[in-house]
């Protein structure tokens, strides 16, 4: 009995310690930015690795998701004689929910797992230690640029996801199902609000960008420096960040609808 209580207490302390470590990591990543000229080049490299390289999967997924939402929406709406409202349906669901959430999930799978593996590998092969011994702070040199790269890439990817998904819906609705293009766009324009719908979706994606990148960096940095440890870290990155994205999405949506 006493043993179980002790184990529970130890588990609790371990969990709190992990959050503490993750917090210190985030603090270091945000506030120990290297000097501007060098840091800028490093951040650009990371926007490339995390953003540009994720672009293809994001765009292809967006196209299909837009098309499928349009197809489903059209058939459901036409039962109520409201198929003219397809534009608003697609635009609102993409801009408010699908865009930020699906982009974040894909980002976690593509860029997040790569980040965790890369940093775990750098740790396992003593690259981080040798950097420290060369008087170069790994938080500043390795973690910070990756954090800012993810922070910047995620909203940009979300914006591109949104536009591609809406274009996919346009292809299905207008080109295939023969809706009137003018009605498609004008109904969309009159029911989508720039601030409430599009900007709020982008705010969400900024939060997701911070969270997913943070989880990936922490899992990599804290990985057990063996092959099994790295494999674990990448799996955990995808699982934890997907859960965090979906949970946070609910909280953020509730806050936004509650006129926060």
């Amino acid at each position: 009995m006493i043993n179980q209580v002790e184990a529970l207490g130890r588990l609790g302390i371990d969990v709190i310690r992990k959050y503490g470590k993750a917090g210190i990591l985030l603090y270091g990543a945000i506030f120990r930015v290297p000097n501007f000229r060098k840091g800028f080049a490093l951040v650009v490299q990371q926007i490339f690795a995390e953003g540009v390289l994720s672009l293809l999967i994001i765009m292809v997924s967006a196209l299909f998701i837009g098309m499928v939402v349009a197809l489903q929406g059209y058939h459901t709406l036409s039962k109520f004689g409201a198929s003219q409202q397809l534009g608003p349906l697609v635009a609102l669901s993409v801009a408010r929910e699908l865009g930020p959430v699906v982009t974040a999930l894909l980002f976690a799978g593509r860029a997040g797992s790569a980040l965790a593996a890369e940093i775990g590998l750098m740790k396992a092969t003593d690259q981080l230690s040798s950097m420290e011994m060369m008087a170069v702070d790994p938080l500043q040199r390795v973690i910070a640029p990756r954090f800012w790269g993810g922070f910047i890439s995620m909203p940009l990817l979300t914006i591109i996801f949104n536009i591609v998904a809406i274009y996919g819906a346009y292809l299905v609705g207008v080109k295939w199902l023969g809706m009137d293009a003018g009605a498609f766009w004008s109904n969309m324009q009159s029911s989508v609000e720039f601030h409430a719908d599009i900007l709020n979706g982008i705010y969400k994606s900024v939060v997701f960008g911070v969270v997913v990148t943070w989880i990936a960096l922490y899992q990599g940095y804290d990985a057990v420096p063996t092959s099994a440890g790295i494999a674990n870290a990448t799996t955990r990155t995808v699982v934890y960040s997907s859960l965090a994205v979906l949970g946070l999405d609910f909280v953020l949506t509730a806050m936004m609808i509650g006129e926060w």
């Binding site: 926007i47 490339f48 591109i160 949104n162 536009i163």
Partner: peptide, 25 residues
């Protein structure tokens, strides 16, 4: 890399402008 990132940024800005004017009017 810098060029590609530049194109990426520009594409996102264009997409945002399109979202603003074409989608949300």
């Amino acid at each position: 890399i810098e060029t590609l990132v530049g194109i990426f940024l520009l594409a996102a800005i264009l997409a945002l402008i399109t979202l603003a004017f074409k989608v949300s009017g």
